[in-house]
Each structure stands twice: as C-alpha cells, then as structure tokens.
Amino acid sequence: MSPQRRAVSLVVNGQRHALEVVVHHTLLDVLRNDLDLTGTKECCAEGECGACTVWMDGVAVNSCLVLAVEADGRQITTIEGLSREGSLSPVQQAFLEEGAVQCGFCIPGMVMSAAYLLQNNPAPSEEEIREGLSGNLCRCAGYKRIIAAVQRAAEEGRR
C-alpha cells in the first residue's frame, strides 16, 4: 500500500509546479525533497525554531507546520527566491556586512523572517526586531549582529 497522493499546484519563487504530493508531507518536505530547494532548513519540525521559514502568499510561515496540500494554489517564496539574478536583497547584504552569519544553518530562516518583518514594518524599533525574530533560533550567535543587520537593512531601505 503506497502512501496516498494528491495533485497540488505551487508557485515557488515565481515558477509554477504541478506536483503529486504525499498527503502527509509538509511544505518543507516538498520544497526540500521534491523540488530540491534545500536552502530552507529543517531542525525541530514542530514550529519552534524558524529554520524552515518561507513566505506563503507573502506571509512568513514555518513550512514544517504547513501541509503541502494546504499550500495548493499558493505563492511560495523561499530563500532561493529572495535574491534575484545574483543580486542580494538588502537583508542578505546587511547580514553579510554586519557579520551576522556563523555556521549559517539558521540564516535562511532568519533572513526570511527579517525580510518579512521589514516589509510590514520598515522602521522597526530594537524591541520590535527582537519580537519579530523571537521564533528563529540561532545557537552560534548572541543575536546582537543579527539585530544590527536588520537595523542596517531598515536604514538602507529608508534611503
């Protein structure tokens, strides 16, 4: 008895994919395994670490908590879609410039959450940044440079 599948259509980073997905697979599973978009990371698989953060219809979500079938017909943006034609988004640029990256495993999720935060609040206070990134765990850093990177990206955005 092979697992039950269903047809879904996802638009990932602007590209449409018609897929037969296993019904209990998460959006994270499908991105990583079916589409080989491995920039999105898996850690806790229970919505607590933020490593798997992507945008669904422009809203940041933990892709480990979204079933692929629930994402049917949605627009998904992953870390691979954030930089276009080799040019980095302001958040990515700021993460590099502030030295916010260590091992990097949390970074794709962190960047997606930070960029989402800035989209909705282009001039966040430090408090708001701490709040906005509190669902993204990093074990390498003291978060200070990550917060500074978001501040820098916000400043760049206001220029």
């Binding site: 491995t38 920039g39 691979e80 930089s83 980095l88 990515q92 030295g99 990097g104 794709p108």
Partner: peptide, 16 residues
C-alpha cells in the same frame, strides 16, 4: 574580513 562562505549561507546555497 568578511566570512568566507558567507554568501552561500545567506542565499541558501550552502549544502549541509
């Protein structure tokens, strides 16, 4: 100096 490997890490290209 900037981190060697930093670019791949912010773009999700780093393969773990």
């Amino acid at each position: 100096a900037g981190r060697v490997g930093g670019l791949d890490r912010v773009t999700g290209r780093q393969r773990y």
